[in-house]
Write a protein that binds this DNA or RNA. Structure first.
Length: 721
DNA sequence: ATAATCGGATAGTAAATCCC
DNA sequence: GGATTTACTATCCGATTATT
């Protein structure tokens, strides 16, 4: 009912009232409804407009009226287009009039070859990566705007006869979407951000880079290639902006016409995209000979920010700008800044009441959906960050998950929601336990096994999501399993039947899953998650290495299997994002002297596995007998291979195991290597330790590999006791 | 027999242009 | 400024195809 009233907002005002009432007009025998629901529209069946409508009810599908109607009426200058078409027909006449700028000079209109020209650095990806994935429930996706399909035609017809002056007049569809997201502008709650000039009032010779020395801002055409990269590879994990708006080249015609927050936003998202994708994909040539392009964008963002009152300018941009700055700094492992910007975007989201379900009811349904996505992206990011850096969390799973827009592939949001569900399992008690602020007694086996079960239950139906998302969800799930397991170990919870995975060899099983997931994947599906994916894999590998260290000398099939998984993980890390991961060397040095790995990663020797032992394992990982509690001097336990191992001997090893993946790793006190950052939802930083300290260890730890932050926290905790 | 799909007819809307 | 033209989107009929 509520939706029905809301839909009236979208309905046009001048519709004949009689139509929906069934009294036929003078000639029309059919009475069209004001607005068909999303499903009926897609199905091309008559909708009765109630909610849920009869066809949807009959088909047992969810009825919604989310899709905003497109703007009607012609776009662009008609006569100019006619002229242009005529000129094209008369192509020979203008063929000789190629200007000195040539087609490569995009001028103030932006890059008109955004998906076709050879000069477009990502034109190549357009055809492949930018294609929307198949739409599962609704048939072919319509997520590519009609005007996007239209643009290349203009370009191609312009062809060799490109002429700036003419091009100006035959300019493409005027930008008519005033808001951040496609809306009916008359009731948009989103601020109107880009007040583009009414017409193409552009300098006659268009090359802002050279002809406008007074121009402070980066030229408009700088952005589009990176925005294309974003939509090609990162949108799946951050589906928070509208393709139709941000892939429309008219937006980038004149950067000076952009509002400050839009400009800042574009700078921030470009900076984050560049650093996140890094060398995993060919990127456009640098904008500046001396300065890295991502740094240039980030600096430009911060510079522009000084020019307006960004604190009072509360809009979704206020949330997204610091979010992408967070991703930028996170990927650069500048943690203090990353943390600052993450907090900033959370603060803005609170200012927008995005954590309050009630606030969404007041919004236009489409706007509400975009905001839900943004909120959940923040939620996921914050949770991942909290876990990785052992920070507290501020956001809660207090608002409904976003729904799939009719215009979109359901696949896309399916993956996003899946990830959100996964992180919902990382509840406050998980974070508290991980931070060490939860009483140990609460981190018991029942709670842990329940948490592990939740993680498995949270992310299902992965076959319906894209490879990139699948990678994210699967690896994240295994990574969270590893963390939960480490929590259990740190609380002395290892028992034999393997309930909740609390077995010594559980990480080997997890590593097997990860290897299975990553082995068949394309590199880009893995790489587009940025440094966060490297971190997770390195955490998992680190934990696996600890387990193997703990069982050193064990020649059982499980152990050898684990060795092989570790080898595969290290190999994956050796070629991530087009280069060797910075986490590889520390892992290798951790492995030094163990299992035959050498520090030099030039050759990663395959561990020799005898067929006999492999055959005997047959995927069946033996478990440790009986529940044990960890206390020095107690009875012995068995390694997966059945080796006797006394607690006195292994206590140190287990202590190491309990320290969140990289604990005990020698690189932790190396500045600049302690942090991880931002892949989309995991623009998060490495936290050195996730364990629950006990006082006996603190002095030794504090003097050793513990980071400053840990020391402060430790002191705080000790003072509190 | 029934349900689902979708090409395309038809209608409505609004920008662009014409006309005075 | 108002009328007209044009270009666009929306609805949904009904032929076709798929499913039970």
């Amino acid at each position: 009912m509520e939706l029905e009233t809301q839909q009236q907002l979208h309905a046009t005002t001048s519709e004949p009232q009689s139509t929906s009432l069934g009294s036929p007009g003078s000639s029309a025998s059919k009475a069209s409804l004001k607005r068909a629901c999303d499903c009926c529209r897609k199905r091309k069946v008559k909708c009765d407009g109630i909610e849920p409508c009869t066809p949807c009810k009959k088909a047992s599908i969810r009825c919604a009226y989310l899709q905003a109607p497109k703007k009607k009426g012609p776009k662009g200058l008609r006569s100019a287009r006619v002229l242009h078409a005529l000129r094209t027909i008369d192509g020979t006449a203008s063929a000789s009039q190629v200007t000195p700028f040539g087609p490569q000079q995009h001028g103030a209109f932006g890059n008109w070859e955004w998906n076709s020209g050879p000069s477009s650095p990502s034109g190549m990806q357009q055809s492949e990566s930018m294609l929307p994935p198949p739409n599962v429930p609704y048939g072919p996706s319509v997520s590519v705007a009609p005007d996007q399909q239209y643009l290349p035609q203009l370009v191609s017809t312009a062809g060799p006869s490109y002429h700036p002056q003419l091009q100006q007049q035959t300019s493409p569809p005027q930008p008519y979407h005033p808001g951040l997201f496609r809306q009916d502008s008359h009731h948009s709650n989103w601020p109107s951000h880009h007040d583009l000039p009414p017409g193409p009032e552009l300098p006659p010779i268009i090359s802002p880079t050279h002809s406008e020395p007074q121009q402070q801002r980066l030229p408009g055409e700088s952005f589009l290639p990176y925005i294309q990269l974003f939509f090609g590879h990162m949108f799946q994990i951050m589906p928070i902006i509208d393709r139709q708006i941000f892939l429309d080249a008219t937006l980038y015609r004149d950067s000076n016409a952009l509002s400050s927050d839009m400009y800042c936003f574009l700078c921030a998202i470009c900076a984050a995209t560049i650093v996140q994708l890094d060398t995993s994909i060919p990127q456009p040539p640098p904008l500046h000979p001396q300065k890295a392009t991502d740094d240039l964008f980030a600096e430009e963002c911060l510079r522009e920010r000084k020019s307006y009152d960004w604190i009072d300018s509360v809009s979704p941009f206020s949330v997204m700008i610091p979010f992408f700055l967070f991703a930028y700094y996170g990927n650069h492992e500048q943690n203090a800044k990353a943390w600052h910007y993450l907090q900033e975007c959370i603060t803005f989201s609170e200012n927008l009441n995005m954590d309050d379900e009630q606030s969404y009811a007041k919004l236009d349904p489409v706007e509400a959906q975009w905001r839900r996505r943004l909120y959940w992206l923040l939620f996921i990011t914050e949770r991942a960050y909290a876990v990785q850096r052992r920070k507290h969390t501020r956001l809660h799973a207090s608002v409904q998950l976003p729904a799939v827009f009719d215009s979109e592939d359901a696949q896309l949001l399916g993956g996003f929601v899946n990830l959100a569900n996964l992180f919902s399992a990382v509840d406050d008690s998980f974070v508290s336990a991980w931070r060490g602020s939860r009483r140990q007694s609460l981190c018991n086996e029942a709670w842990l096994s329940n948490t592990q079960r939740q993680l498995d239950g949270a992310a299902l139906a992965l076959e319906d999501v894209s490879e990139t998302q699948q990678m994210d969800i699967s690896v994240t799930r295994e990574w969270l399993h590893v963390l939960a397991w480490q929590m259990g170990v740190s609380n002395g919870l290892i028992w034999g039947r393997g309930e909740g995975g609390m077995r010594l060899d559980y990480p080997i099983e997890l590593a097997r899953n990860v290897v299975e997931i990553t082995t068949g994947a394309t590199a880009l599906a893995l790489d587009s998650h940025g440094i966060g994916m490297e971190q997770k894999l390195s955490d998992i590998a680190g934990c696996l290495a600890d387990v193997l260290r703990c069982t050193a000398g064990d020649t059982s099939a499980t152990f050898l299997e684990g060795k092989q998984y570790l080898h595969t993980l290290l190999q994956t890390l050796s070629s991530m994002r087009g280069k060797e991961s910075r986490y590889l060397k520390p892992l290798m040095s951790k492995m030094e002297g163990l299992m035959g790995y050498e520090l030099s990663n030039a050759t990663l020797p395959l561990p020799t596995v005898t067929t006999a032992t492999m055959a005997s394992s047959a995927g069946d990982i033996p478990t440790m007998p009986g529940p044990v509690t960890i206390s020095e001097g107690e009875s012995d336990f068995l390694t997966p291979g059945g080796q006797q191992c006394s607690f006195a001997d292994s206590f140190d090893m287990l202590r190491t195991l309990s320290m969140s993946g990289n604990l005990g790793m020698p690189y932790l006190d190396v500045p600049g290597l302690q942090t991880l950052g931002g892949q989309g939802e995991f623009a998060a930083l490495r936290r050195e330790s996730g364990r629950v300290y006990d006082e006996g260890e603190t002095k030794a730890l504090a003097g050793g590999w513990m980071g400053e932050e840990d020391e402060v926290e430790l002191q705080e905790r000790q003072a509190g006791r």
